[in-house]
Design a protein around this nucleic acid. Structure first.
Length: 436
RNA sequence: GCGGAAGUACCCAAGUGGCCGAAGGGGCUCCCCUGCUAAGGGAGUAGACGUCUAAACCGCGUGCGAGGGUUCAAAUCCCUCCUUCCGCGCCA
């Protein structure tokens, strides 16, 4: 969401930005926004004049009513003034309705106009134009065969999808034994890794009210992703970002506490409406998974530095588990409307011989903050919109795929990266285990 | 979940329809006095948002937990919801 003042002052810049994002159909929205903004302000002005008049006259009535106790003629006078105020009532009600309508329509339009992207963002219409920026680690393909991840997990007696389907449907899993333990080990390690970077660990609510959901996501995302609790005003979170950022709605943060660098754990629940390809079987795309996330709320001038730091943390984390990764920058057309700049960290899959997404790092600039009214206040009293960023630290079910594939040994066992061993009771290998 | 009480500015708190954007106190900021560790006097102290403006000040509008309603007029009356506290119940 951009500042309406930017449209008032520099509509051409906003149109150019829309073109860069290959959303030409949205260009008329700029004029639409200007029109609504103008109508809105006209209504506000007329309505507040009427209100001012009403306030004045009402005060006068009050005085007359007081005097009427001694002088009955004043009561008549008061009645006259009452009639006067009442006469304006209809017009005022009309204007108030108009005001509400314009405001709502304007917001709807503004929500569709994309955030101004960073000049460094590569221009391209869709994800095929995303740009590989850099690789970290050697993407190796072993001589021996690398099986599908579910098969690997089954080898260690670590997964039961059949029962999960029966109990909860497709898109759920039972993780078992060492695989389940490894899953938690990754989370615990990721948590401690971020704490080591100075982030504050947080466990947020896993459910939230509809009003917060509407604040943190678009209606279409909401329909496609969110599970609602029947009969209650509660939704299951799709990522801890939802309740972590929701925490800041309508807040004025004391500037001296910035930046807020947080790392949150939560289960995530997603409907995942849409097609599931062959490569999305197993634990790749599921309705329930767990994730360690990083969230930064900072001053505008610091957000690009944080963006750089954040994606590098992901790279460092994955490299410490011997997983080759690359940084893939989102091009303009693939960049979500709220984002100023974003990149994915993709892990190497020796089986598919390609990289796949494991982390998504985004700088939302002030777009999310404007939408949710997240501001900070300096010592001199100046209030400014904050910048917000988020990035995945680790989402184990999916990243377990990369972990297993990249650490698979020729004998069919999986080496446990050293950093995870303390969380695995010192174990250094996953070995064949019987199913339970 | 049931019953009871409450929600007013940084904090405490008065205020049951009209000179109330809100008494009083504490705290904080500034000034004065006095000086020896604490006391006296005075002034200031909604923030925020919208609008107006080139911008700011000013003005105007909104604002007393949130949202509706009644009324010429709502902190005050009515309805719904939320939160907190105290009992009881239930429960990891």
């Amino acid at each position: 969401m951009i500042d309406i003042r930017l449209i008032r002052e520099n509509p051409e810049l906003v149109r150019e930005n829309i073109k860069k994002k290959f959303q030409n159909e949205k260009i008329p929205l700029v004029d639409e926004a200007m029109r609504l903004d103008k109508a809105n302000r006209a209504a506000i002005n007329e309505a507040s004049e009427l209100r001012a008049r009403r306030n004045q006259l009402s005060k006068k009535i009050g005085i007359l009513m007081g005097q009427a106790k001694k002088d009955p003629t004043k009561a008549e006078e008061a009645e006259k003034v009452k009639a006067e105020v009442k006469a304006d009532g209809e017009r005022l009600a009309e204007l108030e309705e108009l005001e509400g309508k314009c405001k709502a329509e304007l917001r709807a339009v503004m929500l569709k106009i994309p955030q101004i992207i960073d000049p460094s963002v590569p221009i391209g219409p869709d994800d095929s134009h995303n740009v590989e920026v850099q690789r970290f680690g050697e993407p190796k393909v072993p001589e021996y065969e690398v099986p599908y991840h579910t098969e690997l997990m089954e080898r260690f007696g670590g997964i039961d999808l059949d029962s999960a389907r029966e109990v909860a449907g497709s898109g759920f899993y039972y993780l078992i034994g060492d695989v389940a333990r490894l899953h938690e080990a990754v989370l615990a390690y990721a948590r401690d890794f971020m704490i080591g970077k100075g982030f504050t660990y947080m466990i947020p609510p896993y459910m939230m009210h509809g009003a917060i959901v509407e604040g943190v996501m678009s209606q279409s995302d909401m329909d496609a992703m969110m599970y609602k609790i029947e009969g209650e005003d509660l939704y299951l979170i799709g990522t801890s970002e939802h309740s972590m950022i929701g925490r800041y709605i309508d807040r004025i943060i004391p500037a001296e506490t910035l930046p807020h660098t947080l790392t949150s754990y939560s289960p995530c629940f997603r409907k995942e409406k849409g097609s599931h390809g062959l490569e999305e079987r197993g634990v790749y795309r599921i309705h329930q998974f767990e994730k360690q996330e990083m969230i930064v709320v900072c001053r505008p001038e610091d957000s690009m530095d944080w963006y750089e730091k954040m994606w590098r943390y992901s790279v460092e984390l994955f490299r410490s588990m011997d997983i080759p990764v690359r940084q893939l920058e989102c091009c303009s057309g693939d960049l979500a409307d709220l984002k100023v700049k974003s990149c994915d960290i993709e892990a190497w899959s020796p089986r598919q011989k390609k990289y796949f997404e494991v982390c998504s790092c985004s700088n939302l600039g002030d777009a999310q903050a404007r939408r949710l009214n997240i501001r900070f206040k300096d010592a001199d009293g100046k209030i400014t919109l904050a910048h917000t960023l988020n990035n995945t630290v680790a989402a184990p079910p999916r990243m377990l795929i990369a972990l297993l594939e990249n650490n698979l040994l020729e004998d069919g066992s999986v080496r446990i990266p050293e950093v995870l061993r303390p969380y695995m009771g010192g174990k250094d290998k996953l070995e064949k285990a019987k199913a339970v």
